[in-house]
Simulated scan of single mutants.
Amino acid sequence: MINEKNENKQNQEVEMETAGRVGLRLGKVSELTVIAPLKEGGAERLRKKLSNNPDQMEVMARIATVHDMRWVIFDDDKRLLFATAYDGDWDAYIDDFGTKIPELLDHFFSEVVDYPGINDPTIKDFIAKHQVTATGWYCAYPNSTVRDIWRGERSLKAFNDLIDAVQGY
């Protein structure tokens, strides 16, 4: 699948390539999927952690390269699937976790067996050990970073506000 060409709606060809150490990149966007065992009782604790803090998603937005993140507890509460799409390279993305939201990542992933902590020197080896490169992956906007999308949304809002003002809404 690596180096396959894909054509998006804007007829711009982008090639599937490696995101760095592990994972795929399509254009400017990369994918990361981790499957890891949970500690005894970790599934229930993680469910509570993910649902108890309404501000946690705002904290995630501190990493302005994150398109999305998903946590899925499966296999009778024994394993966690963590999947995300992000802008750029693998190493830089993992470094962002350690510098921008270390407490939050440690809060969630402390329920994973043998999780060393986001600032532990072995964290990248730990993630790579549990990461699985996607077999198939679709990215609707491979040439648009999160910042590009935010800029587009602000531009569209400003344009719509102008049109509304001219039309007297």
Rank of each mutant, 00 (worst) to 15 (best):
F108V: 07
S144T: 02
M60F: 11
R151H: 04
V59L: 14
T135R: 03
T145M: 09
E15P: 00
E17K: 14
K28N: 14
L81S: 00
D89N: 14
D106Y: 08
N8G: 09
V22N: 09
S144G: 02
H67Q: 11
S51V: 12
S51Y: 05
G88N: 08
N6M: 11
I73P: 05
A61K: 05
L26F: 08
S110V: 10
P54D: 05
R21Q: 13
A165M: 08
E153M: 15
D120M: 09
Q10V: 10
Y138G: 07
W137Q: 04
I123D: 02
A158F: 10
G152Q: 07
S144I: 04
G88E: 13
P102V: 02
G98F: 03
V146P: 00
L32E: 03
Q56H: 15
K157E: 10
R62Q: 15
L162N: 05
G42W: 02
P54R: 14
T122P: 00
I94C: 01
T18W: 12
I73D: 06
R47M: 03
M1P: 06
K100N: 10
N143I: 02
E58W: 12
K124Q: 13
L32T: 00
N6L: 13
N119P: 00
T122I: 02
P121Q: 09
R21Y: 01
D55Y: 14
V22P: 00
L81Q: 12
W150V: 09
N143Q: 10
V66M: 07
M69P: 01
L46C: 01
D161M: 11
E44N: 12
K28E: 15
F108T: 01
H107D: 05
A128S: 15
I94D: 02
F109E: 04
L38A: 06
I2F: 11
I101W: 01
P142F: 03
I73E: 10
L104E: 06
Q12R: 12
Y141W: 09
D96M: 07
P116H: 01
T65F: 01
V112D: 00
D91N: 04
L32V: 05
K49V: 03
Q10D: 12
G152N: 03
E111H: 08
I118K: 06
V166A: 10
G23M: 05
W150H: 13
L38I: 02
G27N: 00
N52I: 02
N11K: 15
M57K: 15
I73Q: 05
I35E: 12
D87I: 03
P121C: 11
A158I: 05
H107F: 15
F108L: 07
N6P: 00
V166P: 00
T18Y: 13
I127A: 06
I118F: 09
E13T: 15
G98V: 07
D76F: 11
P37H: 10
E40N: 07
Q56I: 06
R47Q: 13
E15H: 03
E13A: 14
L80Q: 04
P37C: 14
K100F: 08
F159N: 05
F108G: 00
G27H: 01
K78H: 01
H67D: 11
T65I: 09
A158W: 12
A85D: 05
E58A: 11
M60P: 01
N52L: 05
Y115E: 03
S30M: 02
M57E: 07
L105G: 02
I63G: 03
Y169G: 11
Y86G: 00
V59R: 01
Y86R: 06
D161E: 10
A140P: 06
M57Y: 12
T84R: 01
A134F: 04
